[in-house]
């Protein structure tokens, strides 16, 4: 069911970091992730792009309609379990 992406063992004394379940949605397609709350959200977003085989720079990520500052973590962004991130392709240029 759950695919861990790490082979690295944590030292026993290191506390288990609280995680949050986040859904990333694009055009009705939803993907769920468990994500460590105090790590930069950029990790999650780049993994999503890798999974979907899309260019990270070609999309915009929105949380509650606001563009995500990718250097922040889930705590700073106020994310809770079940929250959804929306993905849309850039269409911002033009004349």
């Amino acid at each position: 069911m759950v695919k861990g992406l790490s082979g690295r063992k944590k030292p026993a004394e290191e506390p288990v970091l609280p995680k949050v379940t986040i859904c990333i949605a694009q055009d009705g397609d939803e993907v769920y992730f468990r994500y460590v709350r105090n790590k930069k959200i950029q990790n999650l977003l780049t993994l999503y792009c890798k999974e979907k085989n899309i260019d990270y720079r070609s999309v915009e990520f929105l949380f509650n309609g606001k563009r995500i500052a990718t250097g922040r973590n889930a705590n700073q962004l106020g994310m809770v379990d079940g929250d959804q991130i929306d993905v849309m392709t850039h269409n911002i240029g033009g004349g």
Partner: peptide, 22 residues
């Protein structure tokens, strides 16, 4: 707040896991 902090490299993958068939 609008600026992306891209100075630090992306952490290794153990901060996130994909849930299949949620």
């Amino acid at each position: 707040n609008d600026l992306d902090d891209d100075s630090a490299s992306v952490d290794s993958g153990d901060s996130v896991e994909l849930i299949e068939n949620f």
